[in-house]
């Protein structure tokens, strides 16, 4: 009787041998994400922009319009258009780091390790604080910690809460949201892959047909991870836009 399936430690399912010293699979995916983005826009830029966009140019323009219309306009308005290249890079990089989680052979989202989400979150944190000081000067701190319209005595409560939520929790939440979602998805994929394999290849004739159930779950979760990969890239990018836009124009 089968009592349990011991699952490999998380360290192990996320650990890959170095392709060469100081360069592992996560680094490979990050570099590939950057290169793929560059190649897409390089090929798009070489096509005649005056003609109706097709192929890779259409793809690039669709992504640009998505960033401008769905992320920048609702959060920062027209004066946020200058942030399009950064937010475009952020979205593409995160999405292409998420996507290998469902690509056969790779099967590893680079964002399921904490280094890249943490770097991106800290970068956004540095940028929105910098933007806040650039646009508001030292008053940025005062405006952030003491929002107008709050009764004076409540500032005793509000100021620490604002400090924690704005300056401490934001990078942490950005990091954990992306990292944990992708890690959880990766663990689910590994779980159902291993379970399917073990049930189908096992000796028990009774358990072999049961292997179809985790296989269907594997298919479902794979499809779900396509959505999660896109959604997490979108959420990270739109929150970055909200933070930057809020720091530049606190009245919004």
């Amino acid at each position: 009787m089968v009592l349990a399936l011991e699952f490999p430690p998380i360290n192990e399912i996320l650990r890959w041998r170095d392709l060469f010293p100081t360069f592992n699979k996560v680094a490979l995916i990050a570099v590939a994400a950057s290169l793929i983005s560059i190649v897409i826009f390089l090929l798009a830029a070489r096509k005649d922009g005056l003609k109706a966009p097709q192929g890779v140019r259409n793809l690039a323009e669709t992504i640009v319009e998505f960033i401008e219309e769905q992320i920048i306009m609702p959060t920062m308005g027209r004066h946020g258009m200058g942030w399009t290249p950064f937010l475009l890079s952020l979205f593409l990089f995160i999405y292409l780091c998420n996507l290998p989680g469902i690509i056969p052979i790779l099967y590893m989202p680079a964002t399921a390790r904490i280094a890249i989400p943490m770097f991106l979150a800290l970068l956004v944190w540095v940028i929105f604080i910098g933007v806040g000081f650039k646009h508001q000067g030292p008053a940025y701190i005062k405006n952030s910690l003491f929002p107008p319209g709050v009764p004076g005595p409540l500032y005793i409560l509000v100021a620490p809460i604002e400090f924690i939520s704005t300056f401490l929790v934001r990078p942490f939440s950005l990091t954990v949201r992306l990292f944990a979602n992708l890690l959880a998805g990766h663990i689910l994929l590994v779980t159902f892959s291993l379970l399917t394999e073990e049930l189908v290849q096992g000796d028990s004739l009774v358990l072999k047909p049961v292997g179809i159930l985790p296989f269907f779950m594997l298919m479902f979760i794979t499809a779900f991870e396509v959505l999660v990969g896109f959604l997490q890239a979108y959420i990270f990018t739109i929150l970055a836009a909200v933070y930057i836009g809020g720091a530049a124009h606190p009245e919004h």
Partner: peptide
């Protein structure tokens, strides 16, 4: 190593996008 490669890859992408790729596409 993941932090370094990830950061490097992103910074390169962001800089190229800012100064070359995006303006070229946007210009068209």
């Amino acid at each position: 190593k993941e932090l370094a490669w990830g950061a490097g890859a992103f910074v390169v992408l962001a800089l190229l996008m800012r100064f070359w790729l995006f303006p070229a596409v946007k210009k068209g």
